[in-house]
């Protein structure tokens, strides 16, 4: 009968179509060298910040025309938040997460991988022309997921500062406590503002001087006055006695006092030195009127 005839023809064509598709995949992965992330290695998220290569995220040269770009995903930014990479070289992106699952999609390329705590992800890509690409976190990772992004800039010529260990990393921004415990920082507002932007604070808090408009946590443009007022509130039960202490406590142990009307969603900082926290505190006091 006619219908069985059509049935056989349709199913055979369908099977052929699927086989052709599989053939194309075989060609893409073997012939055209398009590789997926595989099983590269493991790392303990509890110590990832002190484990190489994630202790120093950024770009390093590993061969004549080969580079490694190490990226650490954390709530809610990428470290480093901006990477400059050379055009025409093989760049191996290596990433992991310090906390929850994040995504890493470099828009306009085929670099697309998950950052899963405990696992190391890796993909190699060659940029053919100069240009700027967003790094987008495309997996839900908590309250400020939509503000988690970074940038990759492909450039014709790298400059000295683009490589790790050559002065661009914040760890070497010259912020430290001297032997008498005094904070040493040339430009507290400038460095503090940069920290505010690169450490993910701006994703949740608004602060006009840092060009930040996050609305998940309380606004910080009046934080000095607010802090002074809050420590006198009956609802405040923790131990800070000055606005400085209150802001420091809010950064280090965010759950100590949760401002009414906002979620208890702020992660404790995991990659800030004591000196950097102090710079943030002083910057916030300075730009909010004290």
């Amino acid at each position: 009968m006619k219908v069985e005839h059509f049935e056989k023809a349709f199913l055979s064509l369908g099977a052929l179509l699927l086989l052709a598709g599989l053939g194309a995949l075989l060609y893409g992965s073997i012939g055209a060298h398009i590789h997926l992330p595989g099983n590269v290695g493991q790392v303990d998220p509890a110590v990832v910040r002190t484990t190489a290569p994630f202790d120093q995220p950024g770009l390093r040269q590993v061969g004549p025309n080969e580079y490694e770009a190490v990226i650490l995903g954390q709530t809610w930014n990428f470290l480093p938040s901006e990477l400059r990479v050379p055009v025409g070289a093989d760049v191996r992106f290596i990433g992991t997460s310090a906390d929850v699952i994040h995504g890493l999609n470099i828009e306009g390329t085929r670099v697309n991988m998950m950052l899963i705590p405990g696992q190391i992800s890796s993909m190699t890509y060659r940029f053919d022309e100069p240009g700027e690409h967003l790094i987008i976190c495309h997996e839900y990772c908590g309250a400020a997921h939509h503000s988690m992004f970074g940038r990759v800039v492909a450039v014709n010529q790298l400059t000295e500062g683009d490589l790790v260990g050559s002065g661009s990393a914040l760890a070497e921004s010259g912020v430290y406590f001297d032997s008498e415990g005094n904070l040493v920082c040339e430009d507290i507002v400038g460095t503090g503002t940069e920290l505010f932007q690169t450490q993910g604070c701006a994703g949740c808090h608004s602060l006009p001087s840092a060009n930040a408009s996050g609305n998940i946590g309380p606004p910080l443009d009046q934080v000095a006055a607010n802090a002074a007022q809050r420590i006198t509130d009956a609802s405040y039960t923790s131990s800070a006695e000055t606005p400085d202490d209150y802001i420091r406590e809010s950064i280090m142990t965010p759950a100590a006092h949760v401002v009414d009307g906002y979620p208890n969603a702020m992660p404790a900082p995991q990659s800030l030195s004591d000196a950097e926290v102090e710079v943030l505190v002083q910057m916030l006091l300075a730009v909010s009127g004290q």
Binding site: L11, G14, A15, S29, P37, G38, N39, Q119, I120
Partner: peptide
């Protein structure tokens, strides 16, 4: 497919089987 910690070979096996499960939907 974009997860770390899973070999590309295992991913390929699942890719082939996924194409297989498309067949009953064609039918």
């Amino acid at each position: 497919y974009t997860d770390p910690g899973i070999s590309t070979g295992m991913k390929a096996v699942h890719a082939v089987l996924t194409f297989g499960v498309f067949f009953p939907s064609l039918a």
